[in-house]
Design a binder for these strands. Structure first.
Length: 507
RNA sequence: GCGCCGUUAGCUCAAUUGGCAGAGCAAGUGACUCUUAAUCACUAGGUUCGGGGUUCGAUUCCCUGACGGCGCACCA
C-alpha cells in the first residue's frame, strides 16, 4: 500500500476530524486496572454485575458494530477479547462522534462496569472512552463465531510470508502465536531457575570471536574496523565456557545466540538459541540425569498439570522418565540386522552404507560412516526421548575418550521425535590429546572439509593449566520449544525468522 | 544448490477451451438504542508479483527473474 492508498488516506483524514473535535489521537498514557481475560473469568463472582465496580482497560479495537445511537465492539488487550457496549446517551455527544471515527486497529481506553447482554455475552458497559492511538493501516480482518462451543474462524491469515515478515500483524490476528512465545519464555525461565537452584552461574561470553570453535559448522565473518581484524560470529560458546571451568567457576551456563552459515529448513535458522552448561567433576552419565530432570521440569512450563505427552511431528511423545540410554553401535546394529563390533571395521561399514543406499566418499572415516548409518537408519525412528551414547572419536573432537570402548567417546545426544535436542560429553580434558584432535581436524580442513574445527591455541593453553573432569551439555532451545508447543517448523518458534530478500511489496 | 507447487482488491478467495477481472469481509455515504461472521440500501476500490515473448486478444500459453511453501541435498 503506497503512501496515497485510499484506505490509508481515509484514516489520515479522520485524524484531522478528530483534532477538530478536540481529540488528541496520540495521547501519552492510560492507567488501566484490568485484563480482559480476568474480567471475564471473574464475572460470575459479582453479586450484582450491573452495579459492580468500575474497571479501566486499554487495548486495540478488533471488531465494531455500530447500531445508530449504540455500538458494540471487541477490544483486544493482548490477553483476549472483551465486548464493549457503548451508548451515545451515556458517553455524551462529542465522545460518540469520536466513536464514529474509530477504525479497526485503533487503540482505546475505556471505563465501565461488567454485565451480560441479552444474548449472553459478558460485556463491559462503557461509561467513558478515550482514543489512545489511531491506526492508519488496515489490519487483516479475521472474524470468528462460536458454533456448539467450537470456535470457527473466518478469513484466517495463513500466508506464511506475511506472518513471518510482518510478525506484528501475525501476533494481532493469530492469538495462538502469542501463546507460543509466552510458552517459549516460560520454558527458558524455568530452565534458568533449574540451573540457578543447582548453583550454576549464568555468564556471558563473546559473540564476536577471533577464532570460532566448539562445533562443526561454517561461520559468518565480519570485520572490526578499529582493530582492522577479521572476526567471526560464534557458532558455539563451548570453548569459552570451559575456559571458565579452568578458572574455577565450577558450574556455568549461557543461553547463547549462535550463528551458522548453513541452509535454512524446518529445523535450521541461521541464528538460533543454544543453552550450554558445564559442571566440574561430572561425567556424561551425571549429565544425562540432569538433562532428564531439567527437561521434564521445563515441560511443566508448557503443559501445566503434569501432562508429559506432547503431540509433535505426527506422534504422541511421552516425556515420562526414565529415558532409555542406548549405545549408538547397539542401535545401528539392531536396525542394520548385524552386530557392529569394535574396533570399527571401515570396509565393513562402507559395505553396510552401500547396502542402505548411502553414498560413500573416499575420504570418509569409519566414524563418519557410522554417523551416516545412524542418521539414515536409526535417528528418524527414535520418537520418545532416547539418550544415544558413545559416538565415534573422529567426529567428536572435544569429547573424552570412552573409558572402555576404544575408538569411541563418552558423548551422548538426546533424540526426541527424530530430532536432535541435546548433545553432550564427558569433556576432553587431556591437553595433549586435545592438541592431537585439533591437528586431525586441521588435516581434514586441509583436505577440504570446511566444517572441520579450527585449532585454538589459547584454548589449549587454558587446558594445559588444568581442566578438571567436566560434564557439558548443549540444548537446542528452539527445537525444544518446537516440541513443547507442537510447532512443525523452527520459524514458528522464532519471532523474526530469517527470510530471503526484502518485503516484495508494500502491503 | 536441485525439483514440484504457488503469487489476482487492504484481507480470504473465484474466474469455463485464451474472449469485457468477480464475490465475501474491510472501506465510504445513509438508516438503525442489546448486536455479535449484526442487518438493509447505495458507492468506490486492480501494474492479476516483475520483465520479455506468442496471439486480433494473455490472470490463463512459453521464456526469464523475485519471493513463499513443500520435498531433496547441505546441516550437530
Amino acid at each position: 500500500m503506497e503512501e496515497g492508498h485510499q484506505l490509508r488516506q481515509v484514516r489520515i483524514e479522520k485524524l484531522e476530524q478528530l483534532r477538530q473535535l478536540g481529540v488528541e489521537p496520540y495521547p501519552y498514557a492510560f492507567e488501566s486496572d484490568s485484563r480482559t481475560s480476568e474480567l471475564i473469568g471473574k464475572f460470575e463472582d459479582f453479586q450484582e454485575p450491573d452495579k459492580g465496580p468500575r474497571h479501566r482497560i486499554a487495548g486495540r479495537i478488533r471488531s465494531f458494530r455500530g447500531k445508530g445511537k449504540v455500538a458494540f465492539a471487541h477490544i483486544d488487550d493482548g490477553y483476549g477479547l472483551l465486548q464493549l457496549y457503548v451508548r451515545k446517551e451515556e458517553v455524551g455527544e462529542d465522545p460518540y462522534k469520536m466513536v464514529k471515527l474509530l477504525d479497526l486497529g485503533d487503540f482505546i481506553g475505556v471505563e465501565g462496569h461488567m454485565f451480560r447482554t441479552r444474548t449472553g455475552e459478558i460485556t463491559l458497559h462503557v461509561k467513558s472512552i478515550v482514543l489512545l492511538a489511531k491506526s492508519l493501516r488496515p489490519l487483516p480482518v479475521v472474524k470468528e463465531k462460536v458454533v456448539d462451543g467450537e470456535k470457527v474462524v473466518f478469513d484466517e491469515v495463513h500466508d506464511k510470508e506475511l506472518r513471518y515478515r510482518q510478525r506484528y500483524v501475525d501476533l494481532v490476528v493469530n492469538p495462538e502465536v502469542k501463546q507460543v512465545f509466552r510458552t517459549r519464555a516460560a520454558v527458558i525461565d524455568r530452565i534458568r531457575r533449574f540451573l540457578n537452584d543447582r548453583e550454576y552461574l549464568e555468564v556471558e561470553t563473546p559473540v564476536l570471536q577471533p577464532i570460532y570453535g566448539g562445533a562443526a559448522a561454517r561461520p559468518f565473518t565480519t570485520h572490526h574496523n578499529a582493530l582492522d581484524r577479521k572476526l567471526y560470529l560464534r557458532i558455539s560458546n563451548e570453548l569459552y565456557l570451559k575456559r571458565l571451568i579452568v578458572g574455577g567457576l565450577n558450574r556455568v551456563y549461557e543461553f547463547s545466540k549462535d550463528f551458522r552459515n548453513e541452509g535454512i529448513d524446518r529445523t535450521h535458522n541461521p541464528e538460533f538459541t543454544m543453552l550450554e552448561f558445564y559442571q566440574a567433576y561430572a561425567d556424561y552419565h551425571e549429565m544425562m540425569d540432569l538433562v532428564e530432570d531439567m527437561l521434564v521440569d521445563a515441560a511443566a512450563a508448557a503443559a501445566p498439570g503434569g501432562n508429559l505427552v506432547f503431540g509433535w511431528r505426527g506422534h504422541d511423545i511421552d516425556l515420562a522418565k526414565p529415558w532409555p540410554r542406548r549405545s549408538m553401535l547397539e542401535l545401528i546394529g539392531e536396525r542394520a540386522g548385524e552386530e557392529i563390533s569394535l574396533p570399527l571395521d571401515k570396509p565393513r561399514l562402507a559395505a553396510l552404507c552401500k547396502k542402505h543406499g548411502i553414498e560413500v566418499e573416499p575420504g570418509m572415516s569409519a566414524g563418519k560412516l557410522l554417523d551416516e548409518l545412524f542418521g539414515e537408519l536409526v535417528e528418524p525412528h527414535l520418537i520418545n526421548p532416547t539418550f544415544v551414547t558413545d559416538y565415534p572419536l573422529e567426529t567428536s573432537p572435544l569429547a573424552k575418550r570412552h573409558r572402555s570402548k576404544p575408538g569411541l567417546t563418552e558423548r551422548f545426544e538426546l533424540i526426541i521425535g527424530g530430532a536432535e535436542i541435546a548433545n553432550a560429553f564427558s569433556e576432553l580434558n587431556d591437553p595433549l590429546d586435545q592438541r592431537g584432535r585439533f591437528e586431525a581436524q586441521m588435516q581434514l580442513r586441509d583436505e577440504g572439509d570446511e566444517e572441520a574445527q579450527v585449532l585454538d591455541d589459547d584454548y589449549l593453553r587454558a587446558m594445559e593449566y588444568g581442566l578438571p573432569p567436566t560434564g557439558g551439555v548443549g540444548i537446542g532451545i528452539d527445537r525444544l520449544v518446537m516440541l513443547l508447543t507442537g510447532m512443525e517448523t523452527i520459524k514458528d518458534v522464532i519471532l523474526f525468522p530469517q527470510l530471503r530478500g526484502p518485503l516484495k511489496k508494500d502491503v
